[in-house]
Structures are given as C-alpha cells and as structure tokens.
Nucleic acid binder design. Structure first.
Lengths: 313, 313
DNA sequence: CTGAAAGCGCTAACAA
DNA sequence: TTGTTAGCGCTTTCAG
C-alpha cells in the first residue's frame, strides 16, 4: 500500500541508503544516479515518512504551538503567521488550546515534548518556575511574557500605552483613566506602569463583558479619555457607555490594544495600539529554529481611527 | 537524556516487551509486575514516544486540520472544538492554513498524509475530483462541502436561509435581496437555491470589503430586507449603507450567516444564521476516529439581534 | 504471564 | 560514489 524507500531502491536498482541520500544529502550522490532515484520515487509517488526519519535523526521537524484560547481573536493572526512561516522551513505545527487551564497546559507540553523540536508558548498561564522546569524537556519560546533565562518574544505594550496616552493628551484630554485587565496579567502590569499618574479602574475580565461591566465606573470617574486593557474590553466599554447615554468619541474617547478584527469592523472604528502578532509568530518560529536563545521585543504602534476625538469642553 | 522503554525495563527488572505491554495492553500483564513497571516509569519520568509507537503500529494518533484561512473568524471556534475533542481521545492535531490556495492545500495534504490518521478538510478550495483522488492516500472528512463518496460534515445553511427570509417577511419586508458570495462557493449556491424568487446581488468577495462594495447595488435595488452571504459581508454592507445614509435596521434590515464574534460585538448587533461550528469540529473528529464513513448535516438556527426590524412604510 | 527476536521506515557511520 | 550494517523507540508475533 504505502511506498517506502525500499520500493524506490528496488525500482531504481540501488541500495536504500543511496535513496535516502538522494533526498537528505543530494550532494553526496552521483548526479545520474540521483536523477534515476528521483525519477523512480516520483513515478511511484514516494514521500519520505517524517516520523521514521525523526526516529533516526532525532529531529521531528514539528513544532508545538500552545495558546490559552484559539477562539480569542488575538491569537489567530499569530497562529496563522507562525504556521505559515514554519511551513516555509518544512516544519509542521501542532496547535493546542489549553482552555485557560494551567494543568492542561502542562500536560500538553509533556505529551507534545517528544513529538516536536520546540514549543511556542503563547501567553502562558503556568507559573514561571514551572515553565523553566519544563524547559529542560523541550526547547521553548515564550510569547507575551518575560521569563528569565528563556527566549521570549515580547511586544512593547508599555510604549504603546505611552503613545496612546500622548494621543489622548494631544487631543486635549486631561482627565484620563486606564481600564485595566485581570490581576496578574503581565501585559496589564506593563501598561499600568507606563501610565504613571493615571487613575486605574478595575481589575476587569479581559473580555467585552468585562468592559461592559466597567462602564458605570468609567462614567462616574469623569474621565474623558480612556485606555482599555485590550480591544475586547474597549468594545464592551463603548457599548456600556452607549447604554448610559455617553457617546464615543463625542463624550469620551476610548483606545484599545491588540488591533483585533472586531475593532476594525466596529462603529466607531476603534483607535488602538496595534500588536504585531504576525511578526511575533514568525519571530518565535525563527527563535525556535535557530535555537539562538535570544529574546526580542517588537515595537507596537498606535492606529488612530474613530473612537478618539477632541476633548469636550 | 531521554528516558526510553529500556530504562524502565532495566529499572523494574523486566524485559522491554513487558514494559510495552504494561502500557498498551495492561490486561496481559500480571498486576504486581505492572505496578512495579508503572512505578519505575513514573519515577523515571518515562513518556512513551508516540512517533516510535506510530512506526510500529501504523497509527500516529495525530490528525490534520486544514483550513483556508486561520484568521477568518469563522474557523477558530471550529479549530478550537476539533482540537479539544481530539485531545480528549488522546489525539494531537496539526493545523495548517492554505492561504486560500488550492496548490498549497494539495501539497499540505500530501506532506501531512503519512503523519496523521486522518485529515479534516474545512471549506476546501480544491476541486472535488482532486480531493477524491487524494482520499486514497489518507482518510478525509470534509467540512462545509458535499463530496460524493466522502464523509462530510455539512451545516444546513439552506434551512438557515429559509429561516432568515421567513423572519424578514414576518417583519413585513416584501422587497428582499440575497447578497451572494463568491462564484463557486458551495455554501453560496445552497443559499441561492433556498432563496427562490429573491433577486441576487453579486458575486461578491466573502469579506467585509465585499459587503462594502455591494452597498450601492443594494441601495439601488430598493430592497428593504437583505440576506448576506456571511457575517463579514453583512458587516461591510451595513457600514457601506451607513455611508450612503441608509440606516440599519431603520431603512434596511440585514441578516448575516455564521455568527462570528465581530457580529456579536457590532452595533447594531447582527441578526444572523448561526452555524454550529464547534459541533461541526467535534463531529468531524468523531467521523475521522470512527472511520464510519457516514455524512452528517447539522442544523442551523436564526439568532435575532438588532440589525433587523419592521419594514419601513 | 514473560522473554526473545524481528521489524516499522529511515539515517548514519564505516567500509569498500 | 555506493553498499553494509546498525540502530532510533516501540510493538508484536512466537516460544517458553
């Protein structure tokens, strides 16, 4: 049924090792022989069995990609880019969703470890030291969290927050607020630290629901310019404010973070701090393949759309 | 470095085959021996190497999941569900994105074939007969397209279209329109067929951009109730209509299809035909594992939100 | 119930 | 440049 290296060897009258070489070390085999082998292989429809190859080389040519929630619109662009970039280098990628559960995350890493050459851990929910320990079993690249001693791909959200606040101030807003994310979020802490002197509202769930729930507090605060933890929160907040009769950007300007698709489709279109998720995905794959071990911080940028405007007077 | 079945055998004083059995056929080994083996394995941190196992059993315990575009919000819920359900049965899943390109799709199937026990092909871009031919290499389940002789997971979009039209008529709309999708889309054809007697506008790109571009034609048509190919088109259409001074649902009612997240966050919240994508993902995985070979059609439902209302008079 | 031995498909020294 | 020979880690007859 399935055609192996042996069938090709037989068909082209050479030994299996020559067939093997024709594929994995072409320069070590005579041009003519090689052509003959390749022709036979092609004719038989031979495809090397990657798993078998992995068993003998120790390289699987597979990568693992673990995220907390595939359906969170933040991740798909990253997954897409990572997967596409990996494929370019002949890697396949296992994608797994932890459902936000640390135990699932750990189990996933363990079962995946032997089957991949490296794991891309995105916005992990596991404790730093657990991750560091697991890193002894399999090479990691961590995205969206800084862990001492591990290669990390970070996005400069602090800078993004500064840009956002600057934009708001430039528009004449003097009463600002930061609608923060969940307690313990690395990103949220970065933003909070960057927003010195700005009143903080929350913690909040990192969802539209969380933003919706924060609306009354925001309205009460008297802030006219607000930076939200992410786009989902910003979107929920805008809806909540509308329900309270507060217009965006008429009465209050709102800025999100991430630049997810729903924000681009929303009305008003969301002003946001764009996270370079595709670039992050590609960079993480590069780090995994190079085993360079370095960390990298990608710049963010402010995309001004329709949810911010002049401060009311 | 890596602990193998041999290390466990040595540590527990039995032969490797006994260790193997302790894991893959526990009932064939003496309770006491087995406990000893398991204890040793646990103590050494042994994890069976799935690739090696696959090589000798012929079952990889991996699945492939191929979609046209991971970043299209229609897919993530399906991917998430498929992956989660697969994991429940100890399967891992390779996720691959074809970038809407048939050639990439074919190549992906070929390279994945040996490494998986089956492939979940979602909204394929390949021709039916090509798929049928590839199905000789690896078991398939096709999602969102009906192919003779292959197990398919379909969603009853025709029924959904009927529900949508009925809803519109019930609201008093008499001038309807169907803003169709791209030429050659199986789903679009189903909907068009279900919308007998309803004027068709398009073909259109299946994106927000496509909907935006269709807005003038919709406005000109004089229709007050429109069913769009999908939510993205509906969202773009609503934006385009707004630009033309046409309000939704005040002047025109719009219904989408899919129930993607952006539609739920939009204002007005989109009335839509919900596609059971998570259920489809799980069903496809089940079909793949059972090798039952049957096809299945999942029901759709209408979710009435804010983009539809009484016909203007 | 357990051990011995062959083999899954491929690669990698080592010879020739 | 090519063939020989061992494995990679695991399962699976077949004996015992």
């Amino acid at each position: 049924m399935t055609v192996t290296i042996r069938d090709v060897a037989r068909a082209s009258g050479v030994h299996v090792s020559t067939v093997s070489r024709s594929f994995s070390a072409p320069h070590l085999v005579n041009q003519a022989t090689r052509d003959r082998v390749l022709a036979a292989a092609d004719q038989l429809g031979y495809r090397p069995n990657r798993a078998a190859r992995a068993l003998s080389t120790g390289r699987t040519m597979n990568l693992g990609l673990i995220v907390a929630d595939i359906a969170n619109p933040f991740f798909p662009p990253l997954i897409k880019a990572a997967q596409g970039h990996a494929r370019t280098h002949d890697y396949h990628v296992f994608v797994a969703d932890t459902d936000e559960d640390p135990a699932t995350e750990e189990e996933l890493i363990r079962t995946l470890a032997k089957q991949v050459d490296g794991v891309l851990l995105c916005s992990p929910r596991l404790a730093n030291d657990t991750i560091a320990r697991l890193a002894e079993d399999v090479p990691f690249v961590v995205v969206n969290r800084e862990i001492e001693g591990l290669p990390c791909v970070l996005m400069d959200v602090a800078q993004g927050a500064r840009l956002a606040l600057e934009h708001l101030r430039g528009l004449g807003h003097t009463r600002l607020a930061y609608v923060r994310g969940p307690a313990g979020s690395w990103t949220s802490e970065q933003m909070r630290a960057a927003a010195t002197g700005v009143p903080v509202i929350g913690p909040n769930q990192p969802t539209a629901q969380g933003g919706l729930a924060a609306a009354p507090a925001v309205a009460d605060s008297g802030a006219t310019g607000v930076l939200a933890y992410n786009d989902l929160v910003a979107l929920g907040l805008i809806e909540g404010l509308a329900g309270l009769g507060v217009g965006v950007p008429g009465d209050v300007s709102v800025i999100g973070v991430d630049d997810i698709l729903p924000g681009r489709l929303n009305r008003p279109k969301l002003t946001t701090v764009a996270m370079p998720t595709p670039a992050a995905g590609r960079a993480a794959v590069d780090l995994l393949m190079d085993e360079a071990g370095a960390s990298i911080t990608l710049p963010t940028s402010l995309i001004v759309r329709e949810s911010t405007g002049e401060a009311p007077r």
